[in-house]
């Protein structure tokens, strides 16, 4: 085997199919998107080169920055919710009754497709027949809000199913990481008289810190390019109140027939996500990894 692997040509040959696939499916479209961003193009007829005009317009586009703000809000909330998921996983990983069942229940939303989740929550949020408002009215709230129609509420209303949707995913990751902690370490701490809280805080958390950092990056990047539920539940409305960067891009490219401008926004979305990822990685980097 070593003999094979020492032959550079063979290595290249093995890497080639995957490389080709990624190049064709990801890198080439990426470069093309940046290139289309330089064009005045409705997506159908011939395109016309206009230099950086689209990018300059995008940077001055108040609607784009509003949607960017919404994306960043989502990133903030997803990151904060990680703490909740972590707490839940800590509880699940300690030997409590029914933790196996609970873990599976938390995972169910992940098994549903985004569109199904969206349809489900559209029904929950329905202003007159929805579950949420029916409960509120039964509790004596006279005039419960129309969740998806009020510009000041709609964004936060959609955050709920988005966070719910990914809860299982992060809980699963944390749970696996926590289960990987060698039992003797926890045992030793317990013998030394550490309380469960101290064990969680001083032993378990530091040991899964590297996993936690990865999930922060995942949550932020995932939020910045988030699209599905928003597209299905409100289409970014009412009048842009729940628009995020990806849905704004889609709207421009496919509804407004501004393919060039939409591509420019898409490319900016990539750049913003890249910058944020680098910043987050830098901010969470530590010099030494804890070993056990």
């Amino acid at each position: 085997m070593n003999k094979v692997m020492s032959n550079k040509w063979i290595i290249a040959l093995y890497v080639l199919p995957a490389l080709l696939l990624i190049a064709v499916l990801i890198f080439i479209p990426l470069i093309l998107t940046g290139y289309y961003g330089l064009m005045d193009w409705n997506g159908i007829a011939t395109m016309e080169f206009i230099g950086l005009e689209n990018y300059i317009n995008a940077i001055q586009d108040a609607k784009f920055w509003e949607s960017a703000l919404h994306s960043f809000l989502l990133a903030l909330f997803s990151t904060l919710s990680l703490l909740v998921y972590l707490a839940i996983s800590l509880i699940l990983a300690s030997k409590i009754k029914g933790s196996d069942l609970l873990r599976k229940i938390y995972l169910i939303p992940m098994l549903l497709s985004s569109v199904a989740i969206a349809q489900l929550w559209i029904k929950v949020f329905n202003p007159s027949n929805g579950m949420l408002n029916s409960i509120l009215m039964a509790l004596g709230v006279d005039n419960p809000p129309a969740w998806l129609a009020e510009p000041s509420i709609v964004l936060y209303a959609i955050f709920i199913p988005i966070l719910w949707q990914y809860a299982g995913f992060y809980i699963l990751i944390y749970y696996a990481a926590l289960k990987n902690i060698p039992e003797p370490l926890v045992e030793a701490a317990r013998i030394d008289g550490a309380t469960p809280l101290q064990i969680a805080y001083k032993i378990k958390l530091p040991l899964i810190m590297s996993v936690f950092k990865v999930t922060i990056v995942l949550a932020i990047v995932g939020s910045l390019k988030y699209f599905d539920l928003i597209y299905v539940m409100t289409g970014g409305g009412p009048n842009g109140a729940s628009e995020v960067m990806a849905s704004y891009m889609y709207k421009l490219a496919f509804s407004s027939n501004e393919f060039g401008y939409g591509s420019a926004i898409g490319f900016l979305l990539l750049i913003i996500t890249l910058i944020v990822t680098v910043i987050v990685r830098k901010a969470t980097a530590t010099k030494e990894e804890i070993q056990y």
Partner: peptide, 16 residues
Amino acid sequence: FVKGFNGLSDEEAKSM
């Protein structure tokens, strides 16, 4: 108009 019409799709309105 029905409550929350700005968040309802035409299909939902029709079913009402």
